[in-house]
Amino acid sequence: MVQTLDRTDLNAVVEQGELVLLDQPWVTLVWNDPVNLMSYVSWVFRSYFGFDKAEADRRMLLVHTEGRAVVATGVREEMERHVEAMHDFGLWATLQKADA
């Protein structure tokens, strides 16, 4: 026998907005630009995202060589906050669905 799901609990979960499993995550991308210094981009990645030096440098070099790098993954609202913060630093950042 399987117990019937308690509807109240289910509603509570939905209301808390935790059903993101079915949704595609979003990513924050930082794009290469010809102006910003490599040392500055790396510093921004460390000071804002909390990456250690090696990880910050790795992602900065990805931006430099590949033209872009993913710097964060998560829900859309969070990625929007990151993008706005990057624009505040003067970095060129966008967000999109992870599979796009």
């Binding site: 630009d33 010809p34 102006v35 910003n36 500055y40 510093w43 505040d88 630093f89 003067g90």
Partner: peptide, 20 residues
């Protein structure tokens, strides 16, 4: 740091900087 960046972004844009 941010203002130096903003000034350089603006100068770079005025100078049509497209590569390093």
């Amino acid at each position: 740091l941010r203002t130096l960046t903003d000034i350089r972004l603006t100068l770079g844009s005025r100078l049509n900087t497209v590569d390093e």
